[in-house]
């Protein structure tokens, strides 16, 4: 689990984007750990959200993830 979380954070920091889809995150994890199930990646992402390291971004119809502190803030 910790390893998946590490892979997610590395991807989130490396990517030039302020927000990304779950799938982008999944692909990045699969590059390092090809056999991890999507469900586990989701669990890891949820933990990162709860720890305040990742944030959700939602348009109302689509949801993306982002690194806390980068890009948009809550007042905007």
């Amino acid at each position: 689990m910790e390893e998946i979380k590490k892979a997610i954070l590395e991807f989130a920091e490396k990517t030039g984007k302020t927000k990304f889809y779950f799938k982008d995150m999944e692909k990045a994890v699969h590059k390092v750990m090809p056999d991890v199930k999507a469900r586990m990646i989701k669990k890891a992402a949820t933990e990162l959200i709860n720890e305040g390291k990742l944030i959700y971004f939602s348009t109302g119809s689509t949801t993306m993830y982002g690194l806390k502190g980068r890009g948009q803030t809550e007042d905007h």
């Binding site: 709860n50 944030i55 971004f57 939602s58 348009t59 109302g60 982002g66 948009q72 803030t73």
Partner: peptide, 16 residues
């Protein structure tokens, strides 16, 4: 404006 990062703690949906 379209979208945002607001929500309630632990939930990724329900708030737009």
């Amino acid at each position: 404006k379209h979208g945002g990062i607001v929500g309630v703690f632990g939930y990724g949906g329900g708030v737009i």
